[in-house]
């Protein structure tokens, strides 16, 4: 992988991270690791503390307490050599609007040239990168003339041009329409593979996390509430299945741990009158929503969402 991979056990190690703005605690005891070469998605609702976490890791924000190591250094005291190994792609950039696309990418790349080593030539070839993000045709256009999706692709190219070993994507698809978002996922997957970097991405969109992540860390209300691969999370935290049916014309729904046994009992009890039977396997989405809800109202259990009253038709009807 890289020369540093041997020395450093993890690209990012966060231990007991805390952040408070005055009285308001945004991060309370956050700990996780990012390993070499993986795509880690930090997933959580808006206001969970994702951006604060990422900005601390990028070295843009001071933390209140805790240990943070990124590429072997504390980002709060990191130097330009460290900066050259890190790429950043933010939600939506509007900078350098008057510059031409290729001109800006080449200028940004030139700042990385002094940090090239024999094993890590920097920057990447600008034209190859433009081709990879599909902006060859736009290379002589002004940046402000790009469409929203093109602008994001340029931002990805700028984030990668210095050949970073680690790239941060902070909510990179916020505001994109579904198609542009799908294209963007494809681009991130392809480009990070092709240009080889460890990735930390934040999103509030579970589908996006499932699309891209090797591993997901769920952050809610300033705490890590789950950490694992998509499959692990599904197994570990996914709750009950949902069974829906009609009985004598009235709709019902119930969340149960064992749908098969429940359906058997249901049909045994009512030989007739049950129709529209439907079993929905618990999904990661249900689990995520449950976790988020639980974190936002600490008194309710993680499975609060699974305990909806099934006997009130008003609640049951779709």
């Amino acid at each position: 992988m890289t020369e540093a991979a041997v020395r450093e056990p993890a690209v990012i190690a966060v231990d007991g991270l805390r952040m408070a703005y005055g009285e308001r605690e945004v991060l309370r005891d956050v700990s996780f690791e990012v390993r070499w070469g993986e795509v880690l998605v930090l997933l959580g609702p808006n206001g969970a503390g994702k951006s604060s976490t990422v900005e601390i890791l990028e070295g843009l924000r001071m933390r209140s307490a805790g240990h943070v190591t990124v590429l072997g250094l504390d980002p709060a005291h990191a130097d330009e050599r460290w900066r050259a190994r890190v790429g950043v792609v933010l939600q939506s950039w509007r900078d350098h609007a008057k510059w031409r696309v290729r001109e800006l990418l080449a200028y940004q790349g030139s700042l990385y040239a002094p940090f090239a080593t024999e094993r890590m030539p920097r920057p990447w070839d600008v034209d190859a990168l433009l081709a990879a993000v599909g902006l060859t045709e736009q290379s002589e256009q002004r940046v402000r003339a790009l469409s929203g999706g093109q602008r994001r692709r340029l931002d990805v190219a700028i984030g990668l041009v210095g050949r970073p070993e680690l790239v941060f994507f902070d909510e990179p698809t916020a505001g994109l329409d579904p198609e542009a978002r799908r294209d963007f996922h494809e681009l991130v997957r392809r480009v990070t593979r092709e240009f080889g970097a460890t990735v930390l991405m934040t999103t509030h969109d579970l589908a996006e996390a499932e699309q891209l992540a090797d591993r997901i860390v769920i952050l809610a209300d300033g705490r890590i509430v789950a950490d694992g691969t998509t499959d692990e999370l599904a197994r570990r935290i996914v709750g009950d299945d949902e069974v829906r049916w009609s009985f004598e014309g009235r709709p019902f729904a119930r969340h149960v741990p064992d749908a098969t046994a429940f359906v058997r009992r249901l049909l045994l009890r009512h030989e007739q009158g049950v129709s529209d039977l439907e079993v929905r396997r618990a999904s990661l989405e249900d689990a995520y929503l449950g976790i988020v809800r639980a974190a936002e109202s600490p008194d309710a259990g993680v499975r609060a969402g699974a305990e909806a009253d099934a006997h009130d038709p008003a609640e049951v009807g779709r």
Partner: peptide
Amino acid sequence: DREDGSLLRARITPNG
């Protein structure tokens, strides 16, 4: 440049 993020871009670039 502060409003449109050009300065932030400089900040996250080495010697930017």
